[in-house]
Amino acid sequence: MSLDKATVRNIANLARIEVRDEELDHLAGELSNIITFVEQLSEVNTDGVEPMTSVAAMTLPMRKDVVTDGGRHDAVMANAPEAEDGFFTVPKVVE
């Protein structure tokens, strides 16, 4: 299956990656090649096969309900590209 430019534009938008119009053709071609490559899986009969999410043959371990973290505002904010009054800041969002 080949991806058209509209599809590429849509997934780029979902992934929040800016793609210039002039890149679209090339990208659509590249992604189509990859999709064609992975589509050979359709040859495999997987009737009745349970999808494998994890190879770890175990179940989810749980932790105790204890406060062991937090209280390190400065470390959490130290790498922030932009901050004000103890908050991270971004361009204003209109709801």
């Binding site: 749980m62 932790r63 105790k64 309900d65 406060v67 973290d69 209280g71 505002h73 959490v76 009054d85």
Partner: peptide, 30 residues
């Protein structure tokens, strides 16, 4: 393991897991 207490100063009850830092992983609270 960060606290759930209401009304704290901004970004003080935040672990690196809650802030989505690289390499941080979730562990569920029983």
């Amino acid at each position: 393991g960060a606290s759930t207490e209401f009304g704290a100063e901004p970004n003080t009850q935040v672990s690196f897991v809650d802030a989505g830092f690289p390499g941080m992983l979730p562990v569920i609270n029983e």
